[in-house]
Amino acid sequence: MDSDTRGPGSGRRRANGEREAEILATLQEAGRALTPGEVVEQLGDELTYSSVVTILSRMHAKKLLTRSQRGRAYAYTPVADEPGLAARRMQGVLDERPDREAVLMRFVDGLSDADEELLRQLLGPDPSRG
């Protein structure tokens, strides 16, 4: 299938997976939704507009990206960001079943909104950066 989505004469062909990973990294770095035009810009014109559109829509079909209408184009964002993936890994270790939780002695337990406020008052200005 579409083995040549690059401009003619570039000579370098890369695997689809590699190009997808590159675009995913670009979207994650941006931290906001990007249109295909913006992705092309971020990549430094490495890929043509049409190939970027092709890859983005393919990734959307694979549910790797979500998209929203922006003007006449779609803007794309990654579905699972780094902390989201990390949480799933940690859950494998921690296991969410209450009995397992109960035998662990955790350093800090969850904070409610009121707790967070109270903690900030107790510790003074922004201890989390200290």
């Binding site: 949480a87 350093f107 800090v108 904070l111 707790d115 107790l122």
Partner: peptide
């Protein structure tokens, strides 16, 4: 020790809030 406990709890909460936004 007080600051360490607070710092760790706030960091864990930032992560938890992040996860809540991303749907976990």
């Amino acid at each position: 020790v007080a600051r360490t406990v607070g710092k760790a709890a706030l960091a864990a909460r930032r992560n938890a809030v992040h996860l809540a936004i991303s749907g976990l």
